[in-house]
Design a protein around this nucleic acid. Sequence first.
DNA 1: ATTCTAATATCCTAAAAACTATAATGGTGG
DNA 2: CCACCATTATAGTTTTTAGGATATTAGAAT
Lengths: 99, 99
Amino acid sequence: MREEVEKWQDEQFLEDTAELLKALAHPSRLKIIGFLASGKKCVKHIWEALDLPQPNVSQHLSVLRNRGILGYKREGSIVCYYIKDKRVLELYKKLAQEE
Amino acid sequence: MREEVEKWQDEQFLEDTAELLKALAHPSRLKIIGFLASGKKCVKHIWEALDLPQPNVSQHLSVLRNRGILGYKREGSIVCYYIKDKRVLELYKKLAQEE
DNA sequence: ATTCTAATATCCTAAAAACTATAATGGTGG
DNA sequence: CCACCATTATAGTTTTTAGGATATTAGAAT
C-alpha cells in the first residue's frame, strides 16, 4: 500500500517538472536538443550548424547544462556537449515524431 | 524517399513545440493537467481542489485553452474543462511516472 | 421584467524573470 | 605572447507572473 497520493499533489514534482519543461521551451534550445539527438557535438559545430551567434548558443547551453539536461566534456581546447538526461531524449523523439 | 530533413531544421516545428512546452512549463498549469488527467472537471472543482485563487486558475485555463491543450463545455451556468490534446496527456503521464 | 446570487472570465498594475546583442574575460595550445 | 574556442558580464527590451478589482453570464426567485 504505497503511492496513495497523486503526482499532481506533489509540489516538488510540479516545480522540478516545470523547470525541466521551461528549459526546453525555447526554439533555439529545442534546436540544440534536436541536433544533439544524434550524438555528442562540440560547441563550434553546434552554433555553425544552427546558424546562431556563438555567445547566444553558449548561454542556451548553460541553461540546459545547469538543469542537468546536457553533460559536457572538455577535449583539449574544445568542449563537447551531449544529452545526459534520457527522459529529455525520449520527450524530444516523441514530440518530433508526432507533429 | 521522403523526410530527408531533420525535424530540428523545421522552424515551424520548433516554434510550435516551444509554445506547447511553454504552456505546460508552470507548476500550477501542470497541476491542472494532472488533475484533469483523470477526466473532465468544472472550474470550481478545479480551483477548490488545487487550492488556488479563482481568477488565477481562470487565467491559467485560458492559456491552456488558447494553445489548444484544453477543451471546454458549458453546462448551464458551469464550465467544464478537459484535456483535448492527446500528446499532452501522454507527455504528462510519462513525466509523472518517471520522476 | 427586475433583482439577486453563484460561477466564470477579463482587466490592470507592479514585480520578477527571460531574451538578445554586444562587450569583456578566461583558458588552451602553438 | 598570439590565435582560437568558449564562457561570462552587462544593459536594454520584452514576457510572465501574481493579486486584486471588476465585468459577464446564467439561473432562480420575486
